[in-house]
Design a protein around this nucleic acid. Structure first.
Length: 299
DNA sequence: GGAGCACGAGTTGTTACCTCA
DNA sequence: TCTGAGGTAACAACTCGTGCT
């Protein structure tokens, strides 16, 4: 056992780390997929029997014992509800290790070291299957539990250990389950936000493409006009574009109908200093493109 | 029955912080 | 006092397995 005292940003002041880590098969590294053992069951077992599991998973006899005892222990337990006794035990475990799950409480380095020490993952024996076929039961949170978690998530999308404990106690779940729920919730929220952002950017792109097409056509028309100046002279002054003589910026009058991105641009200057005059397309040199945030005519 | 999806949970890598030599 | 190594906790990203529609 290792005593580790720290004051982290979440307000945890004291932690006791029991070195009762278990070894789990790496789902990605091992071609042979074994049913993975929820390590929390190991922690249940450890807490119940106040013992630690063997570090080397080749110790099959101990694991078989564990398996039998766990199976009998799990009989009659609703997987969605944790007995009060277990909640209290989990609380203690959570206080001693904020992560509360043995596997996840291991540091990356330690975990990878143990992975390398583990070698053949075939030695892993599941310890929590209640019917002996190595199938894990899918936990399903009740509507009430989900609603409370949702409410809590709306308040704050991360939990400090105290909040986690309180919530776990209130819901009759293990702190680790609350933690996992919040992790998954954050991940899924982020995913949805990414989808929304992606959709928004797609629409922006479409609008810009459309505007680009329109501007290209306008340039084409103007070039055609330039090539026949006598025709231009007979034309009425262009009404779609005006230029501020002060800053020499081009803008369109409010009446021109266009997409939102081509909405007429009104100068912010006072009319005493700036007059809207017909824009002569070849009277000024083409302005260099400006960064979006430099276009001060947009209101 | 099986395809698709939602969701709980495990795994792995990274980062920040702490302790200690 | 500074510094680097090692340990720990927390988190994100990825993944898998199960249950539901």
């Amino acid at each position: 056992m290792m005593i580790h005292q720290r004051e982290d940003h979440l307000g945890l002041t004291l932690s006791l780390n029991f070195q009762t880590e278990t070894h789990q098969p790496s789902s990605s590294s091992s071609p042979l997929k074994l049913n993975q053992t929820p390590s929390t069951t190991h922690s249940h077992f450890n807490l119940l029997h106040n013992t630690s599991l063997p570090k080397q998973t080749s110790d099959r006899s101990l694991f078989e014992t564990c398996r039998v005892e766990t199976r009998s222990f799990l009989k009659g337990i609703d997987v969605n509800r944790l007995p009060a006794m277990m909640v209290e035990m989990e609380e203690e475990a959570a206080v001693s290790s904020p992560n509360s799950t043995i596997s996840s409480s291991l540091s990356g380095k330690r975990r990878s070291l143990e992975r390398s020490e583990l070698g053949n993952s075939d030695d892993i024996i599941d310890c929590d299957d209640e019917d002996g076929d190595n199938s894990r039961k899918k936990l399903r949170l009740s509507k009430d539990q989900a609603a409370i978690l949702e409410d809590s998530f709306k308040e704050h999308n991360t939990l400090n250990p105290k909040q986690k404990l309180a919530l776990a106690k209130r819901l009759g779940l293990r702190p680790r389950q609350v933690e996992v729920w919040f992790q998954n919730r954050r991940a899924r929220t982020k995913l949805k936000q990414t989808e929304v952002d992606c959709e928004f950017l797609k629409r922006c792109c479409e609008n810009l493409t459309e505007e680009n097409r329109r501007l290209q056509k306008e340039v084409q028309d103007l070039r055609a006009l330039k090539s026949s100046p006598q025709f231009y002279m007979q034309m009425a002054p262009p009404t779609t574009l005006t230029m501020c003589p002060s800053c020499e910026r081009v803008s369109a009058p409010p009446s021109s109908a266009a997409s939102p991105s081509t909405t007429p641009v009104q100068p912010r200057h006072s009319t005493s200093n700036h007059h809207r005059v017909p824009f002569n397309p070849w009277a000024i040199a083409p302005a260099a493109p400006q960064p979006l945030n430099a276009v001060h005519h947009r209101s």
